[in-house]
Design a protein around this nucleic acid. Structure first.
Lengths: 340, 340
DNA sequence: ATTGACAACCAAAACGTTTTGGTATAAGAT
DNA sequence: ATCTTATACCAAAACGTTTTGGTTGTCAAT
């Protein structure tokens, strides 16, 4: 591997001059600069990244640790988010370090290792928990990060979040307008901060229409299609099955649709199903899915952009961003059927 | 940030001794070691990763550059693969650097920067192209990598690949057994090496049953659900629509199913649809999807494991791994209907 | 002739770690 | 008393870059 000193020898200049020529300082004569640049090119010089980092004390790298409960995860939501973060990072000259850790001690240890070891310049924390140890740690060490999601410390840190409360109110209004009475839902784990917002939006929204969901109609899923299928089956096999099932994400909604269709029900007629997130798959599912759209790709990009500003100590226009979601009505919802 | 020299001062030992104590060398007395470890703990010492790297000349990092044609991608296939690679990497003490680059000059430049800049120890190259510049570059620089997929240079590098030829033969046999005659397919781009294998398996498999696909029944998609929907619509609106449509991945198959169902066709009865890859979504789709299963998660893990062996100069048991896929028959395929 | 300003260059330090090639001391063998 | 061996320790070099704080030489202004 060719290094600066090799170039320096070849052009008979000092290491300093070569470095400064390559980095565009103006205390190098044009001739020398040209010569150095040409020689570097010719010798196939690429700066040693690690050595640069050690000197500059920054890594130009952002960490994203996916909190996965099962090692396998196959959620389009993540690839969409990852693409948003990754592309923005690339655009800003940052690299992205991606890893997975199940919530727990190992996760915290990993955050510590990356942060204190100077491995990365900042974190993007996703799937925030109400009392989030990752956030506590990062706040404590005063390490740059942006959260996608709120937390109990959220006055103290930058975040981007969807307005899940509003999103679910939109769903509730929509179903009320369609005259649904027996409504069930499949929630996500209470560990996730967003569950709280979505659930309260849903409950309050339905209450506006005079509808109260019995706890037997509130089941907790794990955001996978499989869990939507299983819990959906359970709800539909009830003696008084719901006329509408609200899933807390799209993947579970697909599972519910599948369960309904297996029972010969026409989704959107016999039973209405709603999702949440608005992943592209829902556009061409059968029937296309009524859902609450969040611009996941943009959220990723935005979060990353904010983080880079924080890292480079640029002031943020806005520390806390709460995005208004929009309801996308497709064919998976329809008027409450009377025969059920 | 506390560093070795701080500990050294506190315990009145040299930097060398502290370093060696922490790294488990045996030329440190037990008492001193204990003292040093305790002090390090107490002072909250975390080794500076960058400085370690510079010294050790390795990064313990693997690069994965996703070749995305559109910036957004929402494919469960990728998250599954990423999980496999990421978890294996974590297990082996490696970090994963993930980025996206559209195939082209920027992509090659990025590979060069990472490799020659000593940024990573090796690459996982996915979605191989027949004449793959990335592979050519890495071979040329003798930089460690493992490909997921074959290439025209594949005798010279380690790879893991599915046997796409066999996979498609399984599909062909299955459809022939169901007496399908009018068969269409939606392929992936010819740029991808795997397209070639899948296509020839399909064509030869059908030929065995005396069936030749007319070129008008071979359409090229882009692996998205949308493209499956659009091309599927096109095929189904033909005056002599096919009784079976073979999609080159699951996502496109979902799109095709959606298009069929929109036309009032019952998938698995009026028209058969097959996918390829076996992503979890297909298990709970409606109807569940007949597909060729590839253990994507395991492939990711395996690829990563091989790469780490190459990096650490361990001999590989096997340089070239070709995985036998299995056919998963579900309800999206059935006997050819006679009325069409 | 001296001064000041400027252009072009560079030696050495710094970043924080690991590794190399030692030294000093004490205990045991001769 | 001398030699060997083992134990416990350490100074300095190394990794490859950037930055600091200069120096030298030239030219124009005084």
């Amino acid at each position: 591997m060719v290094k600066i000193v090799d170039i320096a020898k070849k052009v008979n200049r000092s290491i300093t001059t070569v470095s400064r020529a390559l980095n565009g300082y103006d205390d190098v004569s044009p001739k020398t600069r040209e010569l150095i640049i040409a020689t570097a090119e010719e010798m196939g010089y690429t700066p040693n990244f690690i050595a640069q980092l050690l000197q500059k004390k920054q890594t130009k790298t952002i960490a994203l640790v996916l909190p996965t409960f099962s090692p396998r995860f196959s959620d389009p939501y993540f690839s969409e988010l990852l693409a948003g973060i990754g592309n923005k990072a690339a655009e800003l000259g940052y690299d992205l370090l991606v890893s997975t850790r199940a919530p727990g001690d190992e996760e915290t240890a990993y955050y510590k290792k990356l942060a204190l070891g100077g491995r990365v310049d900042g974190f993007i924390v996703i799937r925030t928990r109400t009392n989030d140890e990752r956030i506590r740690l990062l706040l404590d060490k005063e390490f740059p990060f942006v959260a996608f999601g709120r937390s109990s410390f959220d006055t103290k840190h930058a975040y981007v979040d969807e307005d899940g409360y509003l999103g679910m109110r939109l769903i509730a209004d929509h179903l009320l307008k369609l005259k649904h009475q027996r409504i069930a839902c499949i929630t996500s784990s209470r560990n996730f901060a967003f569950t709280k917002y979505r659930l309260s939006g849903l409950v309050e929204g339905l209450a506006q229409g005079g509808i109260e969901m019995s706890t037997s109609r509130i089941l907790e899923g794990d955001l996978t299609q499989k869990s939507g299928y299983e819990l959906g089956s359970q709800l539909l096999d009830h003696e008084m099955p719901p006329s509408a099932i609200i899933a807390f994400n799209d993947l579970m909604a697909f599972g519910v649709m599948s369960a309904a269709q297996e029972r010969g029900l026409v989704v959107g007629k016999d039973v209405s199903v709603t999702g949440f997130d608005g992943i592209p798959l829902g556009e061409y599912s059968h029937p296309p899915l009524t859902t609450v759209y969040q611009p996941i790709y943009q959220i990723g990009a935005m979060t990353c952009g904010m983080l880079v500003k924080i890292i480079s100590k640029c002031p943020l226009e806005k520390e806390h961003i709460l995005l208004e979601p929009t309801l996308i009505v497709r064919q998976s919802t329809g008027e409450a059927s009377l025969n059920l």
